[in-house]
Design a protein around this nucleic acid. Structure first.
Lengths: 378, 378
DNA sequence: CTGAAAGCGCTTACAG
DNA sequence: CTGAAAGCGCTTACAG
């Protein structure tokens, strides 16, 4: 059975329309159609309008492969996620989920398509994405051990593949990074604990250049204490990578070594969750006996018991900064590393806050009700 | 400064190698190179080997656009996520995060690239992805109101765009669906509550053909009660869409209407979380006064207090089934709707389970320790 | 088993 | 402001 398209054209052939079809119908050359579709200032306004109208009638869309092949750019970015051990099946650090949404939206806004894959699925990102022209550039989310990771970045840089990564900008490191202000976040979290009278504050998370984000948070932790005149006790730091189990084990180890603990600053929310579990099992009440602060404000944080006080990173800004920095590299514009502000989100894990009210009832306003104090960093 | 490539070739030009370069070096024609790279049985084994060796030396990768343009297929799928109102910035239903990981992995395994976007970002998916040859087919995750959604599916079908969607297969509906066994899941959840002696069990979630997944869960809820000889009281059902606030409000409404409630079966974990919040605020203890079961087993479920008993969907299988069904459609193989089994994950929200042990300490084995009973569906 | 040739559907100098 | 022509880098009949 024939179908009649909106434009009145009899649609017998399921053939996809080409720019030549439009040229024919519009009575202009195919070159002109191509220019008109891209709204070239070289083309008369009425011609542009006519071409667009016919294109719409024919359901015409520019063939991505033909245009990319000719113009030698794909208008596509590749998001390479680091596969973490996680408690669910996703193998994606929950913090990155929010990033993923904002990166997707930022790409769409800028007219780029987004390819998604896992870093571990390939040992040659340039080959798999740039050399084959699948993507014009790469966004790297997550990395495991920063030192082990270096060679991969070096390789990308040598091969001239545009890329941007989420994380701290280090001198020793390649490429452009967009990251949050870990130092400030760590400072704010620790200052909050100090203000509440805690003095023996532990840091759980690996504080070394293998985990530079954690290291910066640790430096914020140190800075706040120094500023408050509290002596730094190295035995209060305990290594852990970012998952619940590591946080749990590290806390047990810490509790065996230290017996006058006031508070824990966990380098991530996942670590904090593991820490709270360990504290409960050892008979400590949070926050009455030991207060806990996390970092990231992943969705679980507000539903823990007690709800976790933590440091929020602005994932919307972060995603936009990553995408725009990468596009600038691709298009040859100058771009610099960016740092996104953090803010402390106060919930219940550091002490009672009166008039607690459920957070999800008004997600727009973080400060509505009495429970969520959002303290911006200075 | 010159760099010498591993193959010993002086790499003065940053020019990307083409199949002609390989042909020249191998002393064969470009056609032969093309065939050799795809391991065509038409080519002599030693020629294949030689071509691959040279390709490796030159860091050669087949140009995706050139090959896709010529062969008229992109070897790319597009994952279209439905943008939900969520409590974090991601706007992605947390249940879909795990799906995303498994879909990404399944695509890679099958040699397909994966494009990701939001459904709301376009009102013409065929045009934006299929007509432009960006993707050979679409995976649809989430949909809002199923009745409002129909026209979109109808349009895809009419336009001949291959697609697959996560959700229940209905007669009235277009295309191939892959979904979980909602009926069985609803049955198991309700049976679990019945076994624990509860009789006045509420269902929170919109049970209509606008939300067919919820409706099927509701039917499982009805079936279990009928089977147990419990009369169905329609006043125990309360509409809610799948977020915490809706669950919270629905529960408050329900509590005003019903005063002898034993238990709540929430149509999703997000609803269950909102429900538990409402119960707490009204002074009910979970599970002592009122038991709660959810559905989905999102990561938050295990960290709620009490930890949420819920129905888990196997996201790894689901992702694989979605991808393989779509690829079958694309390649013209027959494919049928698939249903993935569910299983009940027993935690603390329906009553004390002795010897509670922390779940994340052994994520592989859900039944280790005494806390997580995993009951397979029959 | 191999090669010469056509052509996928565009964009973009080049010429007017 | 417009058109004729070249060519992006492949795959795939076609001929041998």
């Amino acid at each position: 059975m024939k179908t009649i398209s909106p434009g009145g054209r009899t649609d017998l052939t399921k053939q996809k329309a080409t720019s030549f079809d439009i040229a024919h119908l519009a009575g202009v050359s195919q070159s002109t159609v191509s220019r008109a579709l891209r709204n070239s200032p070289l083309v008369k306004a009425e011609t542009i309008e006519l071409v667009h109208k016919i294109a719409r009638q024919l359901n015409y869309k520019v063939d991505k492969h033909a245009s990319s092949l000719r113009s030698q750019q794909s208008a596509t970015l590749a998001l390479l996620l680091f596969e973490d051990p996680t408690s669910d099946d996703s193998l994606i650090n929950p913090f990155f989920h929010a990033m993923l949404g904002s990166i997707t939206r930022a790409c769409a806004k800028q007219g780029y398509d987004l390819l998604i894959s896992f870093q571990q699925l390939s040992d040659n990102w340039t080959g798999d994405f740039a050399d084959s022209h699948k993507a014009d550039g790469l966004i790297l989310l997550g990395y495991g051990d920063a030192i082990d990771y270096q060679p991969k970045l070096k390789q990308l840089e040598e091969q001239g593949t545009p890329f941007v990564r989420w994380g701290p900008q280090m001198e020793s490191t390649c490429g452009i990074a967009v990251g949050c202000n870990n130092l400030q976040g760590g400072f704010d979290a620790t200052a909050h604990l100090l203000e509440r009278g805690h003095r023996r504050i532990a840091f759980i998370g690996t504080a070394s250049n293998h985990y530079p984000e954690f290291f910066q948070r640790y430096q914020g932790y140190v800075k706040a204490q120094v500023q408050a005149g509290v002596a730094i006790d190295p035995s209060l730091q305990q290594d852990a990578i970012t998952n619940e189990e590591a946080g749990y084990q590290a806390t047990l180890t810490l509790l065996e070594r230290v017996n006058d603990l006031h508070a824990i600053f966990a380098a991530s929310d996942l670590i904090a969750i593991g820490a709270m579990q360990a504290l409960k099992e050892r008979g400590y009440r949070v926050p009455d006996d030991i207060a806990v602060v996390g970092f990231d404000d992943i969705p679980v944080a507000r539903f823990c018991t007690p709800a976790l006080t933590t440091v929020r990173q602005d994932t919307r800004l972060a995603g936009e900064a990553l995408v725009s920095s990468l596009i600038k590299q691709i298009t040859g514009q100058p771009t610099a590393p960016a740092t996104i502000d953090t803010r402390l989100v106060v919930r219940d894990s550091c002490g009672e806050v009166l008039g607690a009210r459920c957070e999800f009832l008004d997600p727009k306003s973080q400060s509505r009700g009495n429970r969520n104090y959002v303290l911006g960093s200075k």
